[in-house]
């Protein structure tokens, strides 16, 4: 067992974990952030996407100890004062959610993109979510939702 410290959604945590535990399992099992989903366990589907120190990572591909000292954002951390993040709202309004299993990862990838590039083109959006598979929607509405949320920082 090793002890790691990390910040998740603005809160500090210290956890004792097995050396071979993945960040995905630390977040879900030890800390209860079950909005982080597991779809493939090998870095292909993006369902387990979280933002780690400003960059998206597949949490199934990051070992728990590698996250020691890092700052992590999961889908649970996007609401502010009971207000949905504009990307979350856009996903609802546009109908970009079907089964919802890809949705947390998809929204976090979109957030990481918009944080860096507030005004992406459609191509840049598609590129930005290219590591996230969705088996239900066919992506059109997801891209539309991100377009709608585009530039939200100017408004807020």
């Amino acid at each position: 067992m090793i002890e790691i410290q990390l910040t998740v959604n603005g809160k500090d945590y210290t956890v004792n974990i097995e050396e071979d535990k993945r960040l995905l399992d630390v977040l879900r099992e030890d800390l209860g952030f079950t909005g982080v989903k597991e779809g493939c366990s090998e870095g292909e589907c993006g369902a387990c996407t979280v933002i780690m120190d400003g960059k998206t990572v597949n949490s199934c591909m990051v070992m728990g100890f590698q996250a020691n000292g890092s700052n992590i954002v999961t889908i649970e951390g996007l609401e502010k004062d009971g207000q949905l993040h504009p990307i979350q709202q856009a996903f609802i309004d546009i109908g970009a959610v079907q089964c919802g299993y890809c949705t947390p990862g998809m929204i976090l990838s979109a957030k990481a993109l918009l944080d860096k590039n507030p005004n992406p083109t459609k191509e840049e959006i598609r590129e930005g979510i290219s590591g996230n598979l969705c088996r239900c929607t066919g992506y059109s509405k997801i891209v539309k939702a991100v377009e709608k949320a585009r530039g939200y920082e100017d408004e807020s």
């Binding site: 909005g35 982080v36 999961t74 979350q88 309004d93």
Partner: peptide
Amino acid sequence: IRVDALSKVTGKAIYPADVY
């Protein structure tokens, strides 16, 4: 608007593996 859209965009929707 889907009835479950809100729970899904916030990560609160419970899939079976989320039950502990």
